[in-house]
Amino acid sequence: MAAVTQKSGGDRVLRVINVALLSLLGLVCLLPFVHMAAKSLSGRAAVSAGRVAFWPIDWTLSTYRYVLQDDLFWRTFQNSAFITIVGTLLALTITTMAAYPLSKPGFKGRKVILLLYVFSMLFYGGMISVYILMRALNLLNTLWCQIIPLVLSQYNLFIMKTFFEGLPEAIEESARIDGAGPARTLVSIVLPLSLPSLATIALFYAVAYWNGYYHAMIFVTRADAKPLQLYLYEMITTTQNLYELDPAQAAGLSSSGIQAAAIVVSSIPILIVYPFLQKYFVHGLTIGSVKG
């Protein structure tokens, strides 16, 4: 890497501009979170009057106490964790399996299958027929009815296929010459080389599962089978009946403060996923290292 680093003046200016722009971008993206965190830690009067910007006023933790004390919050949190972990593992497996053959020009039937995926990506049979299906499978009010709809995204499939196509054919060829069967080539050569792509697709699925609530809104009528994001969505779109709380408790709380706290708490788990996956986004696994 060091060998490629330029020392010319023009490049240095470019690099400074680049870092400055990226810092600005990072800041612009971070501020709303800071704003929300500040709101979640501020007293009711300040939040209601819209006085909180990026630093809490009248520090309080009562919003977090309120959110974390709610049974439903924990229940839905567990549901979301299950859906996300199981869903992502399943989806990643199926998508990788489906994408690999599609990246092989020699695979007869490839075009038909690809067209099938494109077609099914664009046409949607409507909510009613999907509901009938879920009901027939007896999956309403379960966590599985929230996993199945997202278990294969054609969008991710195409990305994965494109990534596989980017791998030099020569590597697989040499493995084959060494006597490795197709299955062994896939497991011991292709997949290790595809870690960045696998990490990307896993992230896309994990985020889709964690953020998803649309299907739960249709298939789930029992509070204990809802995902966290549906709980949050309901909390944000309906007014919290804070007037029904006792005055002492309500005094420190505002509905926007509670919403902010809930958003902060629910974002943390998924925000952690990315930095964790980032270590697979490394240029280190170059083709050369495998070749040698």
Partner: peptide
Amino acid sequence: YFMLPVEDDLQNLLMQIGGGE
């Protein structure tokens, strides 16, 4: 006890009753 969703609840109710729930 069961609850209708927060949005499009009428549509959901009809689908459930029509679907044989």
